[in-house]
């Protein structure tokens, strides 16, 4: 747990009670159990698979539970070139994911269209859905994906989760 400064220790209730802010507790839980939805579109998907397999082992960061159903996922990893034909499907999948949800644009194509400046390619997935972390590279190495995941964890750590919970009905409408 990195937010140890926010915890306090009391010898009378040792082992039973931990004092913390609700925010940091929720965020701690969330950041260590990210369930990604691998939106494997092109070459980057192969590096995504490599990151999930033995050598790089994404399980070290609690994100090994790849869910192919958006309903069970909270991180959309857009790995590969998003074409206009595919764009609305990606948007649809993002919309189907339950809140809270995050998105990683993996690789140059998903971030900005990359080397495909052409009539068929959406110039960056951020034109359709909000992106939290952009990972550069064509394709990014699995290490870069893991670095992106850690950045996302750091971002989740700082979120005001309880505030968002209170505001949820308003946001949803």
């Amino acid at each position: 747990m990195s937010n140890t400064g926010e915890m306090s220790y009391n010898s009378k209730v040792e082992g039973n009670v931990v004092l913390t802010r609700l925010d940091s507790a929720i965020n701690w839980i969330r950041k260590n159990s990210i369930w990604p939805m691998p939106m494997g579109l092109a070459c980057c998907a192969i590096e995504l698979m490599a990151a999930a397999s033995s050598r790089f082992d994404i399980a070290r960061f609690g994100a090994e539970v790849m869910r192919f159903s958006p309903r069970q996922a909270d991180l959309l990893i857009v790995a590969g070139t998003v074409t206009y034909k595919m764009a609305l499907a990606v948007k649809r999948i993002y919309d189907q994911m339950p809140d809270p949800k995050w998105c990683i644009a993996m690789g140059a194509c998903a971030s900005s269209g990359g080397m495909y400046r052409s009539y068929a390619v959406l110039q960056g997935i951020d034109r359709l859905i909000p992106v939290d972390v952009y990972i550069s590279g064509c394709p990014p190495r699995p290490e870069a994906l893991l670095e992106g995941l850690m950045r996302l964890q750091r971002k989740i750590e700082k979120e005001h989760s309880t505030l968002a919970l209170k505001q949820e009905p308003a946001l949803a409408s």
Binding site: Y84, S118, L122, Q123
Partner: peptide
């Protein structure tokens, strides 16, 4: 509506917006 490999069609594409939500934009060249 277009035929992309015809020579007069620009590489970056032409903006198209269909009522069903499908769209394309011209890529920045």
């Amino acid at each position: 509506p277009h035929f992309p490999l015809r020579k007069e069609f620009p590489l970056e594409g032409l903006p198209v917006h269909m009522p069903d939500g499908h769209f394309t934009d011209a890529a920045p060249m």
